[in-house]
Design a protein around this nucleic acid. Structure first.
Length: 132
RNA sequence: AGAGUCGGCCAGACAGUCGCUGUACGAUAGCAACGCUCUUGUACGGAGGAAAGUCCGGGCUCCACAGGGCAAGGCGCCAGGUAACGCCUGGGGGGCGUGAGCCUACGGAAAGUGCCACAGAAAACAAACCGCCCAGCCCCUGAUUUUCAGGAUCUGGGUAAGGGUGAAAAGGUGCGGUAAGAGCGCACCGCGCUGCCGGCAACGGCAGUGGCAGGGUAAACCCCGCCUGGAGCAAGACCAAAUAGGAGAGCAGUGGCGUAUUGCCAUGGCUGCGGCCCGCAGGGCUCUCGGGUAGGUCGCUUGAGCUGCACGGUGACGUGCCGCCCAGAUGAAUGGCUGUCCCAGACAGAACCCGGCUUAUCGGCCGACUCUUUUC
């Protein structure tokens, strides 16, 4: 695989460098059922064969991420963990690009069959479509 | 060298970089009585052998509980280990394998009940299809008749050797015996009983004795012995906003009693209808209290713990001493990217904690042992 291809996929050339913008503390996650209900009520949607992404603007001033990876769609705990980690990582790297929105990512059946690069590209497309 | 058996161990590695999470020590800010929270720095920890299935056994928590019995469920050769077990260790019986070894729900069928397809005469207080043997009536054949010999049908009786059916048909093989047969008799094997010996025991060995009891099935009911109260960390304890609801207290004023302050009694308060009063309808505001929801804190990881050594034990394991702290998340951390290397990385993710069992699993390493072949 070409080294340049891997890096050029990122939206920001400085992604991967040490910047405060790329930390991902607990306050940047949806942690209450009320937060989830807020997004599910009036979401903007974006979907492909891997994920369904729901977005709703919030008043907090930064983006927050919530995950809904069902046991029904992805069987083993190991596969669910992998998908969640990839989503969080992509969210973290695009945090300065994402504005003040609450995001919920739902994984579809078969998402665990895709490799890491495919998953990353899918997520970038979702961020662009919903926020850009 | 090949094939195999048993036991133990590992679970891609390294580097750079960006993150997540816990603890410790700091820094900044906020609330400010210890302290708590936000952000942040440094250091050190951060999934498994099965974390899985949730099939057993415990700890822990709450509820229930005088004692005993019944029911229900589980377990089932013997001894030991253990907190406990359906687990483990050692031993015995049975089965498989040339062997190292492996498998084994392995108590009771002379307490009772049920079931046993098909085949077969018969599947259970035994019975007799084809047979074999004996006797009798009548008939046939042979030698002159009686008589005798042979044969056939039928009748009565004996028999369980042989045939055939079946997973299984009142032990097996052999010799004797008999009309034919039969443990009828004998020898060996099997079985039962008795005694002695070995063993804690299961059980084994030896000797004597009985001709020999009687189908299978108890992961069918059942009998015998032993065990079991129920629910689970969403257990349980604590803090506790908003809203609704509950309990209590107070709230302008007016009149009376009282020397007076205080106090006591009555009325009454707020909203709507109404100009006002009466009246009717409804309960206002403030504070306090308790229950309790969202949410939060604890439970939450120091434990039947791990390592090493010594001792006891065949072993499971136990005892003692030195040392160690080895995940604790909670919309849920342990990862992303880049590079290098190789034998190319399987199954798979902690959720209160332990002990087991079962199931999934790429490959590799170590030790002990067995069989076969070759060489010396």
């Amino acid at each position: 695989m070409d080294k340049r291809t891997g890096k050029s996929v990122l939206l920001f050339p400085d992604a991967g460098k040490k910047t405060n913008d790329h930390s991902f503390p607990k306050s940047y996650r949806l942690s209450k059922s009320a937060d989830y209900a807020f997004v599910f009520a009036r979401p903007a949607k974006s979907a492909d064969g891997i994920f369904t992404v729901l977005v709703r603007p919030n008043e907090i001033g930064h983006a927050r991420l919530g995950l809904a990876i069902s046991k029904k769609n992805i069987k083993t705990a190991v596969a669910r963990n992998r998908i969640k980690r990839l989503i969080r990582e992509s969210f973290r790297q695009h945090l300065s690009f994402l504005r003040s929105v609450d995001i919920i990512v739902l994984a579809k059946r078969g998402a665990d069959k895709k490799n890491n690069q495919t998953v990353r590209r899918s997520l970038q497309a979702h961020w662009k479509k919903l926020v850009g």
